[in-house]
């Protein structure tokens, strides 16, 4: 490449205001010039003459530069660069927000059938509470409740009897499992997470069981939570020494208060 061509390219690039494009323009002009020189050499021109002719064919550098400047408009160029950085930054933000943990919650939760097919769910296999408990009663909520787009229901409740012995004295322990379900059509929603620690249960003996832990007893313990985009399930348990009565009522005292009654029926 002669120094003449170098001067010609510099004159062209001086006219291009969008500096980040100058290197690419230089490469393209050089490639074009070199191709032309090689073509001329192929048909018999000597190298020096081929360079002169090729350079002459490139035209007036200022004219070419102005034309290129019109194509490589600075505002368009900067916008393009900004959009490239924008894509990169958005990728970084997405990866930082850890989108993969959400995939876990896409697995559908139970909607029908037995919510405790393997026995008293909160105890692992091999424990006496799990292996020796007998389901003596079952029930479902007598009604559903509609609030702010959610449907609250009790699709499953059961009472388990577990025979125990302490100091040579045999006694029975009763475990009640209550599953509260909340359905909605807002896949982006996480369900009414705040209510699980505010629910109360009451039975016909006027015993009140609260989700706020009380060492003295009478606890309605929130033990498990499952959710998919359209349904949230909260599992609660009550442990007591007296057999449950005929019914249990789950209630929420805030806003527009509601309650759902479960009538126990003998488990088959």
């Amino acid at each position: 490449m002669t120094c003449h061509f170098g001067d010609w390219v510099s004159a062209v690039l001086d006219c291009v205001r969008f500096r980040p494009d100058r290197r690419a323009i230089r490469r393209e002009l050089e490639a074009h010039y070199e191709d032309h020189v090689k073509d001329l050499e192929r048909i018999g021109y000597d190298h020096k003459l081929a360079q002169e002719r090729a350079l002459g064919a490139m035209g007036d550098p200022v004219e070419v530069g102005r034309t290129l400047d019109k194509v490589h408009k600075p505002w368009l160029g900067w916008l393009w660069l900004a959009s490239k950085w924008g894509v990169l930054i958005c990728w970084v933000f997405l990866l930082l927000s850890d989108p993969f943990w959400r995939l876990d919650s896409l697995r559908p939760v139970r909607r029908t059938g037995d919510y405790e097919p393997d026995g008293l769910f909160s105890f692992s296999a091999g424990t006496p509470e799990r292996d020796d408990s007998i389901r003596i009663a079952r029930g479902t909520g007598a009604q559903t409740v509609e609030r702010v787009g959610y449907t609250v229901s009790v699709p499953y409740a059961a009472v388990w009897k577990c025979a125990k012995e302490s100091g040579g004295t045999a006694y029975d322990e009763y475990w009640s499992t209550v599953v509260v379900a909340v359905d909605d059509h807002r896949f982006w929603d996480h369900g009414p997470k705040g209510i699980w620690r505010e629910l109360e249960a009451a039975d016909e003996h006027a015993c009140v069981y609260r989700t706020q832990w009380d060492p003295a007893g009478g606890n309605f313990i929130w033990v498990r939570f499952d959710a998919d985009p359209f349904r949230a399930l909260a599992y609660f348990q009550i442990c007591q020494l007296e057999p449950p009565g005929e019914w249990l009522e789950i209630s929420y005292p805030y806003g527009e208060p509601w309650s759902i009654r479960i009538d126990w029926r003998e488990a088959s």
Binding site: D98, R147, V148, V152, P192, Y254, G255, E256
Partner: peptide
């Protein structure tokens, strides 16, 4: 990507109005 990030973050509320709506849904209030 911004929409995917917003979803991955759990549709965070940035305004007081958004926070009130989130509170309404969290506690079944209106």
């Amino acid at each position: 990507l911004a929409a995917a990030t917003y979803a991955a973050l759990g549709f965070p509320p940035y305004t007081v109005r958004g926070m009130l709506e989130r509170t309404e849904r969290r506690y079944l209030l209106s």
